[in-house]
């Protein structure tokens, strides 16, 4: 997704199952189907709730008939903890939901195509604490099934929901390790300064 931003510059490697994702011969469309993404700001399509979820399965032909598609939609919404809230109004516009619901809709949309990895780019920064708690609980639920990489500015959130933490500063990877270790005995001075609140 970086290449859609004109000023983006990447150094180093990112691999998924030993495959370099910046390999120019790689089909990014296939890659994106394997890696789901949730954005900072909830961005549901201006379609119905149902169509929002069904969009991914439709383009990948995951459902051969409409009952199967219904099932995928219901499952995804259920796993995203949204089913009970929206099951009676699947035809309403996705944009009419509240911010927290929209974000969970976006997560449901991402898991509907059954990706291997889900990237979350500050998924809670536009949400209030209660909605944040719901999304975090959802991440907690999902992490058994998917590899989730989450970007956050909130150290408490990182400490709460992650097993491994990587600390980036101005685009450089400073330190990576078990969450417990990072937050209790960081190796790098910068990491210590950050987690003790000396800057940032």
């Amino acid at each position: 997704m970086n290449e859609t931003i004109p000023t983006c510059r990447v150094t180093g490697h990112i691999t998924l199952d030993d495959q370099d994702i910046y390999d120019p011969t790689l089909d990014v469309v296939r890659l994106r189907a394997r890696v789901g993404m949730v954005f900072q700001k909830p961005n549901p399509f201006p379609k119905s709730i149902y169509d929002n979820i069904a969009y991914g399965p439709r383009i990948h032909g995951l459902a051969s008939h409409s009952t199967e598609l219904d099932e995928i939609v219901a499952n995804s919404l259920d796993r995203a903890g949204l089913w009970s809230e929206v099951k009676d109004r699947l035809d309403d516009a996705g944009t009419a939901l509240s911010g927290g619901q929209q974000q969970r809709l976006c997560i449901a949309r991402a898991i509907a195509v059954d990706p291997e990895v889900i990237l979350m780019d500050e998924p809670c920064s536009a949400l209030d604490p209660i909605a944040t708690a719901k999304v975090e609980a959802l991440i907690e639920d999902l992490k058994g099934r998917y590899a989730i990489a989450i970007v956050t500015h909130s150290m408490q959130q990182a400490a709460r929901i992650s097993q491994k933490t990587a600390f980036f500063h101005l685009g450089d990877l400073i330190e990576i390790g078990e969450t417990k270790q990072i937050f209790t005995s960081p190796k790098e001075e910068k990491t210590r300064d950050y987690i003790t609140g000396r800057f940032g």
Binding site: R32, F39, I59
Partner: peptide
């Protein structure tokens, strides 16, 4: 908005799609 573009591409849709 570009965010809709992003959402669709992130789901593995092609550009024309």
């Amino acid at each position: 908005p570009k965010s809709l573009d992003d959402a669709s591409l992130a789901l593995g849709a092609t550009k024309s799609g």
